[in-house]
Amino acid sequence: MALLVVEDLHKRYGREEVLRGISLELEKGETKVIIGPSGTGKSTLLRCINRLTEPDRGRIWLDGVEVTSPRTNIYRIRSQIGFVFQDFNLFTHLTALDNVALGLIRVKRVPKREARERALRELERVGLADKADAYPAQLSGGQQQRVSIARALAMDPKLILFDEPTSALDPELIGEVLEVMIELAEGGMTMLVVTHEMGFARAVADEIIFMEHGVIVEQGPPEVLFTNPRVPRTAEFLRKITEFYGKSG
């Protein structure tokens, strides 16, 4: 069984059906990129995977454990799934170091000293050990996003979900975040990434998943999707985002 299995996921908000039967799989160590127009349900899909949003129908498994089962300890599951938000959501009142250590201390019950040491190592990994004592408001967007990646990494997640991690950043800060993410992907982390940075997708994605109106229109390796997509709509959308975001991404 794959590390992450999503089967026939449905979600509606009022009369609007946002997810209409999404199925996907992610093997251990794989990186998949989700693309699709605004309002298509990409964020909703990610939030359903760790049940920050409750799906209406469908099932999800993480490493053989059914996430959607009412008997599952959802807090435990969430602690095994990293989540990186578009607007970082670092804890405003805590320093970079304490942001990374908080989950270890409160969720994993790691002793404080040990947690801080681990947190410092994670900050080193994203190149921010020298900012350990800075508060989020004292960091650039790119630095904040790297701290939030360190915060996710500190929990030893089985999987990390990224929801447009660079789209709130000034163009000159995008590179430093993508660099960290590429390193993670190459290091064998399992990642599901909503992004329109096609340079990143080409570099590390095993598959690109094109979503529209709550369904997966097409999925496949980047080479195939870029050169020879099955559905015309995929080609059209890919052309649009490459124009908009640039080829290098």
Binding site: N50, L52, Y75, R76, I77, R78, S79, Q80, I81, G82, F83, F85, D87, N89, L90, F91, T92, L102, G103, R106, V107, S148, R151, M155
Partner: peptide, 17 residues
Amino acid sequence: KRGQTLAALSLGMTRWQ
């Protein structure tokens, strides 16, 4: 901000935590 709670929950904290 609501995102603060979301981030806390995503780490596996309970609502009270």
